[in-house]
Nucleic acid binder design. Structure first.
Lengths: 133, 133
DNA sequence: GCAATTACGCACCTTTTGGTAACTATGAAA
DNA sequence: TTTCATAGTTACCAAAAGGTGCGTAATTGC
């Protein structure tokens, strides 16, 4: 049974599908599915920023997580890192074209959160009141 | 300095802002910023599903993570759990109205991943080739 | 000569996330 | 009487995420 479905699927130039664990689009989704990655991309949509500015914008990110996440985003081509090679250091981060295309839908997500968080809070309170805790 | 800015902010009915760590919309965003939550919401957009169907749809989720994530989504009012109280058990999961409003933008994210994963893969390969692995 | 500056890297630790396997309930069917 | 089906739960463990604090480079201004 498994063989036949595989044979049927094989010829069809493998349509990208986030529900397919072996599809590389899944990796792309996982990269985004992170609090800091989402916020960094959204923040950079406002324009290029350097390290200290990003820390201020995100509010409560640690230096370590900021650097780490920026490096992953740069590695995957979403963020561009420009080191001006000065002393003291001056490094600017900005969105690539691909990163920019992503930021548009992430902003929609931000708006969703800012619009509906009240409903979530209320539901959570109700749930916790009824059930244990 | 800190006092004065606080005093200035206090009266302004606190506009929701995901960049404000103390804003509850941040919690909403973090709830979504999870591989499994994203995929579950997207899957349920196709219609109500029960446990086994969701496991098949997501492909590689463990029973534990599925149950755990579904419980959190239900707690926050995004997913509705209907237990038909039969034996053997029959439990159906579906999206609430709020969950449904979220699924629309999540599907856009899915399409983004399916469209641009090739660019990410290429960038990653280039990056790893240049720098040390 | 000395301090300040900026964007890190590294070591160490705690917390969260996630996986596996074994166990549960219960009525219907064999 | 035993087995099956379904949607879990629990205990235990490994891996990843995340925080804190300290060290570093090299030029500018004191």
């Amino acid at each position: 049974m498994k063989i036949s479905t595989d044979l049927l699927k094989a010829p069809t130039a493998s349509i990208p599908d986030v529900f397919d664990p072996t599809c590389s689009s899944r990796h792309a989704l996982e990269l985004i599915a992170s609090k800091w990655a989402m916020l960094i991309i959204s923040a950079l949509e406002e324009g290029p920023m350097r390290n200290a500015a990003l820390m201020r914008r995100l509010g409560d990110v640690s230096q370590k997580m900021l650097t780490q996440t920026l490096k992953e985003l740069e590695r995957n081509g979403l963020v561009i890192r420009e080191d001006k090679k000065t002393v003291p250091p001056h490094v600017e981060y900005s969105l690539s074209a691909v990163g920019n295309s992503l930021s548009e839908t992430l902003l929609v997500l931000d708006r969703w959160a800012e619009t509906h968080f009240g409903a979530l809070d209320a539901a959570r309170e109700r749930y916790d009141a009824e059930r244990g805790k």
